[in-house]
């Protein structure tokens, strides 16, 4: 049997909102250690890697490893039926055809059950090598979302240049161009407002706005985002999910013609 309970559905609601633009379906790998999802978007440009540790759940039981193929659109619709304060329980039996979502209101007076058919999926699994990145930037997630949105008006790609002076985002298009520079924070009053740059060597990479704007849908999950970059390798855009895990987005860079 598989059963995982969260005291508040808000986290799971936000996770679904953070992946639904990129993924139509995904396999949820459930084991004793927790729930893992690794899936590429249809165009195979980006990869989503989600990790929810079993110890982050209020209750977690997984008698045997399960791979459950889920339709993300349907799952999003079901999670939208839960109030943020509702308790959410995911339940499936061994060799399941279905997964059940159970929402319970805070006062325990409303109990909702949604059963979703699982899908058989033949998914490729990618091995992501351990990488030491040339630049690792931590910055407020809302600031990153704002920059991606603002610069998307000027072109379909954003160039990110990171040096020890700071991080610069540039977009250029037919109607003009724009750039935004952020310096490392000298002294931040609050940790979540800080811009911190850990640079081994400068990096300059270009990424499609469309994907970055999908990644920033994870902004409600965490006040800070971590961007890891090295020359000619995918960007890693990481959001912590409370004390329970993280979501990482990998995005292939644009390659010079």
């Amino acid at each position: 049997m598989f059963e995982a309970r969260l005291a508040q559905s808000a986290i799971l609601k936000k996770v679904l909102e953070a992946v639904k633009d990129l993924l139509t379906e995904a396999t949820f790998e459930c084991s004793d250690s927790g729930i893992q999802v690794q899936a590429m978007d249809n165009a195979h440009v980006s990869l989503v890697s989600l990790n929810l540790r079993s110890d982050g759940f209020d209750k977690y039981r997984c008698d045997r490893n399960l791979s459950m193929g889920m339709n993300i659109g349907t799952m999003t619709k079901i999670l939208r039926c839960a109030s943020s304060e509702d308790t959410v329980t995911l339940r499936a039996w061994d060799n399941p055809d279905n997964i059940i979502f159970i929402f319970e209101s805070q006062n325990k007076e409303k109990l909702s059950e949604y059963e979703m058919k699982l899908i058989n999926m033949d998914q490729e699994h990618l091995g992501i090598p351990e990488t030491v990145y040339s630049c690792v930037v931590k910055m407020p997630s809302q600031e990153f979302a704002r920059i991606c949105k603002d610069l998307s008006q000027f072109g379909e790609a954003i160039t990110i240049a990171c040096s020890k002076e700071g991080i610069k985002f540039t977009a250029a298009g037919d109607y003009g161009n724009a750039n935004i520079k952020l310096a490392q924070t000298a002294e931040a009053d609050k940790e979540e407002e800080a811009v911190i740059i850990d640079m081994q060597e400068p990096v300059k990479l270009t990424f499609a706005c469309r994907y970055l704007n999908s990644f920033v849908k994870a902004t409600p999950l965490c006040a800070q985002v971590k961007l890891s970059m090295s020359g000619d390798v995918p960007l890693v855009c990481e959001y912590q999910i409370g004390d329970i895990g993280h979501i990482r987005y990998y995005l292939a860079p644009k390659i010079d013609d």
């Binding site: 091995g127 995005l251 292939a252």
Partner: peptide
């Protein structure tokens, strides 16, 4: 602005 790379050309399928 260049050609879009594919993620599976960077990471090996296992």
């Amino acid at each position: 602005t260049g050609t879009q790379g594919r993620i599976d050309s960077f990471f090996k399928i296992i």
